[in-house]
């Protein structure tokens, strides 16, 4: 099990191989459809993402007197962001995407060139994810609604995640199809 602590360098990422297991300790940032649209249309990300980790997730949160509490926060289907994925990585400089279901083969190839891996998390594992969140650092673009907003999260031992697409162009989702 490899422990990743963002910000990540290109070297950190190029060392990973499809099938490796990793956990993340540090900052991860959620983004779903609408945040991807904004950023790929030219809006600057309200949080620094160079070397960062994007989490495809629309959390379920509850407002408490002490602020928001995340109850369930598993991964969402990454494929919805496919048309924007490459542009998003180019503009932001993120080094890892966490999601479920994978990205298509063409995008996997582009991610490899850009030096960005795809980390698969178990879909439906919402409570495991929520309990790995130590702190909600910021909620940005709240006008998009709680599920589409950007949540800047500090996590500890988030995972385990499976390296499903590595920078050599290996893609575990396609292994069985070939």
């Amino acid at each position: 099990m490899t422990k990743l602590t963002p910000p990540l360098s290109e070297g950190d990422i190029r060392r990973l191989r499809a099938g490796d297991l990793v956990t993340i300790t540090g900052r991860i940032v959620t983004a779903r459809d609408k945040a991807h649209v904004r950023i790929t249309k030219g809006r600057k990300s309200p949080v620094g993402l160079r070397g960062g980790v994007i989490y495809h997730c629309g959390p379920l949160a509850k407002r408490t007197p002490k602020g928001w509490q995340i109850l369930s926060a598993g991964p969402t289907t990454s494929a919805r962001m496919d048309p924007m994925q490459v542009e998003f990585v180019k503009r932001t400089g993120v080094r890892a995407l966490i999601g479920k279901g994978g990205v298509n083969e063409e995008i996997a190839g582009q991610l490899a060139k850009l030096g960005c891996v795809y980390l698969a998390f178990t879909g439906g594992a919402g409570v495991i994810a929520a309990r790995a969140i130590e702190k909600i650092e910021k909620i940005l673009w709240e006008d998009l609604g709680p599920a589409e907003a950007i949540w800047v999260l500090r996590v500890r031992n988030f995972g385990p995640l499976v390296v499903a697409v590595d920078t050599r162009g290996n893609n575990l989702y396609l292994r069985e199809k070939r």
Binding site: C57, G58, S72, A73, G74, T76, G124, G126, V127, A130
Partner: peptide, 15 residues
Amino acid sequence: NLELAKKFWAPICQD
């Protein structure tokens, strides 16, 4: 995850 969801009465999945 199912054990944790049951224990904390938390939704299994955020969706």
